[in-house]
């Protein structure tokens, strides 16, 4: 499912909203999530999951093409942990298919 397919699905269910408003709302939600992570803020959505930042220590890496040594600076990367409901539902659906 892509961002535009998500917008179509939501537009089908939010009949009272104009299509461009659904687009704008999805865009805004993704921007709020991104902005929060950029501020170093945690995100917790019950039933869905949580986003946080993980620290990556500085390390010496290599350019895989040339083999040159590159110093990599410490950084933060976004990390998602699925919530219990999402974890159980995704795994449960597997049981249904496997059985």
């Amino acid at each position: 499912m892509t961002r535009s397919e998500l917008i179509e699905l939501l537009a089908g269910k939010q009949k009272h909203l104009a299509h461009k408003d659904v687009e704008l709302t999805v865009k805004s939600l993704l921007e709020y999530l991104s902005a929060a992570l950029c501020k170093g803020q945690r995100i917790e959505i019950r039933g869905f999951g949580s986003f946080s930042l993980r620290y990556r220590s500085p390390r010496v890496g290599r350019n895989p093409k040339t083999g040159d040594v590159v110093d990599l600076t410490p950084k933060y990367v976004p990390h998602f942990r699925p919530g219990k409901e999402l974890r159980d539902r995704v795994d449960g659906a597997w049981d249904d298919i496997a059985d």
């Binding site: 499912m1 892509t2 939501l10 269910k13 939010q14 999805v26 939600l29 999530l33 999402l86």
Partner: peptide, 30 residues
Amino acid sequence: REAKEFVEQFFEEIKDALVAGQDVKLSGFG
């Protein structure tokens, strides 16, 4: 009320796709 419904449906649609085994690709986000 609209905002609450929208936010809930937004995450619900993403969940439903994942439960159905579909990847969800939100350009600009992840």
